[in-house]
Nucleic acid binder design. Structure first.
Lengths: 356, 356
DNA sequence: CGAGATCGGTAAAACGTTTTACCTCCTCTA
DNA sequence: TAGAGGAGGTAAAACGTTTTACCGATCTCG
């Protein structure tokens, strides 16, 4: 395909009157061997002049390194994961490595082939984003492949190494805040399929118990939202279904005075549901989200939510992965669990309950 | 890094008692030469048994093909581009090629190096998404690299080959609709930096002229929103600035009765601006968006907007690119311009003007 | 029955690096 | 003055494919 104009390391060697080895050493800043200043300069210059461009494949074939790390995301359809990938890009760039994003099909058969063939070969290491319960199986398969990986924003109970927001802390902040302004009847709107959100329910129950508050079963609205963006019900499940679930909560004989949502998408749906029912937020009902996603400040009123420290999460994850790559497989850095501190963003959707 | 357990084509050859060439042919379904059914089966089976996994780099080094196409997006921070990449993924998968997403830094120096070294080598072809005015320079640099590329959702006036919504038609639909329900004073809220939106302004003017309607300068609110997601003002420029610009329109001595927005993000900001000013939408003001992005149905009222046929755009783009790759550089498919039909999504933010 | 096809393969040369194993000076030290 | 050791290299062997160029049978047909 690409024509012959390609200049190789061999051409440089000939032109500069040195061996191929030397050229390779110089271009790779290989410090194991001293090179005379003058030779180095000469080689560098001829490389420049000839417009040399290293052949990525040849290098990778021999060295088993690509300088690329991969981020595998179940989808990019929401507003959270794109934001995360963005931050990962920035972090990777800061460390001089390239980050490429793939969205492998999360389904029975394909996943194995895909992970093995492509990602494991192409990338020096893998970032596994936004883990879905079913992803676990694929991770286990990854064990067979000797590439370092780090789970990011996949929950705190996922197999390490992982980098995640401290979800226990986050839920504590949320509940503390809501209880603090007077709420007692707090409902929860979340999903069962996303591991991280799944875990949050547990933390929520714990926190409520700590305050001696009971959560009627009817206050736990958990939906099996799909992660596969090509699921025919994808959009509905992320919009209509949480909206209806939220409205069901509002219509309860003894409705909650606050709804804590596992993500800002659900919170937004709840907001819309309230608007449609003519329920004033935050006057009659408080709504709180998770993640501080794009839409949280897009509307009026702005969403009170728990911000994920994405920048920090991203740089931690990239650094951890890079360290693992550096050290090779031997060291057991792989038990690392980084839990980063969330931040409460108080905005316009929460207020003391009326009944107070 | 990766240990020795890797089984190569050589092992299969030895085990199956055939030559390396034959194994390669069989595994690649190379039809130039007939292979006996029995040999084929035997080789396939031993490959299976040995757990053979082709070495991507060796293959690419020799064949100059990777089976991967790249999508280059200026960012993934909004809600439109992630949606587009999603559809591209699906389309690529349907054709059996892998799609990887990169977000090259769109800045003076880095872009050249990045595009050349990585993307041009790694990918068989490139999809250039959501073109930004400054991207043009980098595209020109790409000419030096012999890889096929297609611009997607980058505007209709960008250098072909391109696949885009028919923006002229889209604007016609929008204006037809608004004028049709009685609007005369229509303002435009858009950006100057995104090529596609830049073009839409022109179409807007043309359409209005066609109806004999004048657009006062004050009705054209054009903002230099950044495309670089790491721009410190990024979030503000996409939220606060359009909100204020929209409010400025509403505060005009003779305010517009409808605002046509270049994307749904701006429309959302306008909606919020109206809410803050106590202006009822659509009662007192109609707001219309572009693209039918994620947030368009997330809120109440839902956004009336022009939907981009993303699925169609994506599959057209992928097919075009694949054709170009297939044919090699020689053919001049590269003048192709595909303009796909938009669709008007009538929802809740537009109504006849009160003064009617 | 001889000349070409066709069928079913094989050997070996790329592809462009990195890495391993040497090698030759030269200087320093005992 | 022998020997160690460092500085500055080089030659050649990988890495695991794809591709090019052949080759020997077996069939086909005039």
């Amino acid at each position: 395909m690409s024509k012959k104009s390609d200049v190789s390391i061999r051409d440089i060697a000939r032109q500069a009157g040195v061996s191929i080895t030397t050229v390779s050493r110089i271009l790779n800043q290989d410090e194991t061997l001293k090179i005379m200043e003058s030779t180095r300069d000469r080689v560098m210059e001829t490389a420049q002049v000839l417009g040399y461009q290293a052949n990525f494949f040849a290098a990778a074939l021999r060295s088993h390194r690509t300088g690329i790390i991969g981020a595998l995301s179940p989808n990019l359809s929401g507003t959270f994961l794109p934001l995360l990938t963005q931050e990962l890009q920035r972090a990777a760039r800061a460390h001089g490595v390239e980050l490429l994003i793939g969205t492998p099909e999360v389904d029975e058969v394909n996943i194995a082939a895909q992970l093995k063939s492509l990602q494991s070969l192409l990338f020096d290491g893998l970032l596994l984003l936004g883990d879905v319960l079913d992803y676990q199986a694929s991770i286990r398969k990854l064990q067979g492949v000797q590439k370092p990986y780090v789970s990011v924003c996949a929950g705190v109970n996922v197999a390490p190494p992982l980098v995640n927001m401290d979800d226990e802390q986050a839920t504590a902040m949320a509940v503390d805040y809501l209880v603090g302004i007077g709420h007692r009847r707090i409902a929860y709107l979340g999903s069962t399929r996303w591991n991280q959100e799944h875990e949050r329910v547990v933390f929520f129950k714990t926190m409520m118990r700590r305050y001696g508050l009971v959560i009627p079963d009817s206050y736990l609205a958990l939906m099996p939202v799909p992660y596969n963006p090509f699921d025919p019900n994808f959009r509905d499940m992320w919009t209509k279904v949480p909206l209806q679930a939220a409205q069901a909560l509002m219509r309860l004989p003894e409705p909650p005075t606050a709804i804590l949502c596992a993500n800002d998408g659900f919170a937004t749906a709840a907001l819309k549901g309230a608007a449609q029912l003519g329920i004033d937020v935050p006057g009659e009902l408080s709504i709180m989200g998770h993640n501080d996603e794009i839409q949280s400040t897009l509307f009026h009123p702005e969403l009170t939510t728990i911000r994920q420290p994405l920048t920090e999460i991203a740089s931690t994850a990239v650094e951890l992965l890079l360290t693992m790559i550096e050290r090779g497989a031997e060291e057991n850095v792989d038990s690392a669990r980084y839990l980063l501190m969330p931040q409460l963003m108080i905005r316009g959707t929460c207020a003391p309950p009326q009944s107070l």
